[in-house]
Simulated assay, not measured.
Amino acid sequence: MPEFEWRGDDIHFYDAPEASSLTNIQGQYCEIEMPSFLVEELDLQRLQELIKTHPSISRAAILFSDMNWSLEFEAAGQISLEMAIRNAIPFPRETFESICSATFSNIGGIVNHAFPEPLMGAEGLWIASITLLDHSLTVRQARDKAKELTTEVSISQGDNGLPTRSFVLHALRSGDLDRIIGQEENSWLEFKSYVDLSHEASKVELAQDVARFANAESGGILAIGFRTEKVNRKDVVAKVTPIKFDSGIQERVQGIIDQRVYPPMRGLEIFKTPQKGDLCVLSIVVPPQLEHEKPFLVHGAIVAGKTEGVFFSVVRRRGEGSIPVTAREVHSMLAAGYGILRRSKE
């Protein structure tokens, strides 16, 4: 395991003596710049102990030169991950915070703040700060989560050349919808050519579409105004088919979801992409949701082609399709939640 020691105000790495770092000590505070691979296998607690072996340092920041992120070590023992994400999708702040929370929640991360930073002269720059409660995490694990968040919210294409969620969202927001033609439906993306909200069955179906993404691991996007065709057994966008919605369609859709999906979803976003005339495409973005708030239930179910208002349904997304959550799985979730509640009261 690579470890280091202070030699004066310089750092010496035992396993990489030729490696160097830049240090800037100001009173009891120190900034250290280094590549993350030099300490990636160290857990945060050990790294904090090594830093504080310097006789005058009580607070420090490690700036990792291979990514725009850093670890902040406070005198009281708190450790936080700070990061700057460039070329980010212009999410509403609440949506960005929700994505940050869902990304870091499974490693004990709590979002301190997440906001756009227009003062630094970089369009699409977001600043995020996450407190890391689990100090047994390694630097590698913290770095991987930082990369995951960057991939989630940046405008880019994936390593395999296929459009990422960020790429699709950027196309929807910018109005460059032709870039979505040829895109396949998948676990986080569904297209519809039209939605009729005048019937109860259609309202239940819309609520189920949204709840599927909320119950999935990574959320998803429902885009209305695209015609798909089957290509190699997959639904692929063949044409943009914008539709005419009334001026209050976003509020109406939000009302249907609020009325029929429980618990309320964090960071849900509904927006229109104007097209020629009074036509538009409607998009519903469901950020990843916190695991302890699942499953998301839908008030109403479609049974044998009929809408049953006194029933509730639980669905989730798998691949291109959807699968119902079984009674056994619902019972397991309820039992697990009851167990956690009971232990918290002991």
Rank of each mutant, 00 (worst) to 15 (best):
V195F: 04
Q275N: 09
A216F: 02
N232K: 10
T131L: 12
E269K: 03
G255Y: 01
R165Q: 04
E152D: 15
F271G: 08
S129F: 06
G267K: 05
L206P: 07
A214S: 02
I249V: 14
P163Q: 05
T273M: 10
A214D: 00
V253E: 09
S129I: 11
L149V: 07
R143D: 13
P264Q: 02
A211I: 09
S129M: 10
T164M: 00
L133G: 12
N160W: 06
L132R: 00
I257R: 08
V210T: 04
V139H: 04
S202Y: 01
G161L: 03
L197P: 11
G158M: 07
L162H: 05
D235H: 05
Q250R: 05
G175L: 14
G248L: 12
Q208M: 08
Q157S: 15
A146D: 01
D134E: 12
A238R: 06
G161F: 04
I256V: 04
D196Y: 10
V236P: 01
E148D: 15
F213I: 06
N160G: 05
I257D: 06
R173C: 09
Q183D: 11
A201T: 13
E269W: 11
G225S: 10
D144L: 06
I130V: 01
D144C: 00
K239S: 09
D246Y: 11
G248P: 06
T273N: 04
K276L: 11
G255K: 03
P263R: 03
M265V: 09
S156F: 02
I155T: 07
P163A: 11
S218H: 10
I270C: 07
F167L: 00
E217K: 15
I243S: 00
S202D: 07
L177W: 10
T150V: 04
S156M: 03
R179W: 07
K192G: 12
S198H: 13
A142P: 09
E200A: 11
G219R: 00
D178P: 01
Y262V: 11
R252A: 12
L133V: 00
V237W: 01
T241G: 03
I243M: 00
K192D: 02
D176K: 09
E251V: 06
F226V: 11
K276P: 01
T228Y: 02
V231A: 03
H199A: 10
K244L: 14
M265G: 03
